[in-house]
Computed example of a mutant assay.
Amino acid sequence: MYNEKGFTLIEMLVVLTIISILLILILPNLADKNEEVQTKGCSALAEMASGQVQAYVLDHGTDPDSIAQLLDEGYLKTDTCANGAKQIQLSSSGEIVIVSP
């Protein structure tokens, strides 16, 4: 007598094979999307910083000298993108630019 309610070894191998194939197909797509999400996140941070520069000008009547000044006074929480690969900086013309550190 044996337990007929459990999986056989062959059934388990088939299930593991199917899961493996699905992972092989899905993971490369997730890696591509991750880069796209990081790029959009950096762009969003730059747009937010641009808005905060305008808020700083409204409060102080002058342009900030640097992003560090916005950080020190609490207008921004960070100048680094989520993945840490890029930062925002204030250009000499007063525009926000994304640069690699």
Rank of each mutant, 00 (worst) to 15 (best):
A85Q: 07
L71Y: 07
D63S: 15
Q69P: 12
L70Q: 08
G61Q: 11
D63P: 12
L71D: 10
D59H: 14
G61Y: 11
L76E: 05
Q89V: 10
K86G: 01
K86E: 09
G61L: 11
I88R: 00
N83P: 04
D72Q: 13
I67T: 04
A82S: 09
D79V: 01
E73S: 14
D72W: 11
T78P: 02
Q87M: 01
G61M: 11
D63K: 13
K86D: 09
T78M: 02
H60F: 13
Q69Y: 11
Q89A: 08
T80R: 00
D72F: 12
K86R: 09
H60K: 15
C81H: 04
A85H: 07
I88D: 01
L70E: 09
Q87P: 00
G61S: 11
A82R: 06
C81W: 02
K77R: 08
Q69C: 10
D65W: 13
K86A: 04
I67P: 04
D65P: 10
Q89M: 06
E73M: 14
N83G: 05
I67K: 05
S66W: 09
G61T: 12
A68D: 15
Q89S: 08
D79E: 07
D59R: 13
A68W: 12
Q89T: 07
A82W: 04
G74S: 07
T80I: 04
C81T: 02
D59V: 12
Q89Y: 06
L90Q: 02
N83C: 03
D65F: 12
Q69R: 15
S66H: 11
Y75H: 08
D63H: 14
L90Y: 01
L70R: 08
D59C: 14
G61F: 11
A68C: 08
A85V: 06
Q87L: 00
D79N: 09
D65H: 13
T62K: 15
E73Y: 13
G84K: 02
P64V: 09
Q69G: 14
Q69M: 14
D63Q: 14
G74D: 09
D59E: 15
D65Q: 13
N83E: 05
A82M: 07
D79I: 01
L76W: 01
T78S: 06
T78N: 03
A85C: 02
N83D: 14
Y75S: 07
Q69N: 14
S66Y: 10
D63I: 12
D63F: 14
A85D: 11
L90E: 02
T62I: 15
D63E: 15
G74Q: 08
K86Y: 06
Q89K: 10
S66C: 09
G61K: 13
L70M: 08
L90V: 02
L76A: 03
Y75P: 05
K86T: 06
Q87K: 07
Q89E: 11
D79G: 07
N83F: 04
N83T: 04
D59L: 13
P64M: 10
T62P: 13
T78F: 03
T78I: 03
T78H: 03
K86N: 10
D65R: 14
E73L: 15
A68L: 13
D72M: 11
K86H: 07
D65C: 11
I67G: 04
G61A: 11
D79R: 04
Q89G: 05
E73C: 10
T80Q: 00
L90H: 02
D65E: 15
L70K: 10
S66N: 14
G84D: 02
L71C: 09
T78A: 01
K77I: 05
T62W: 12
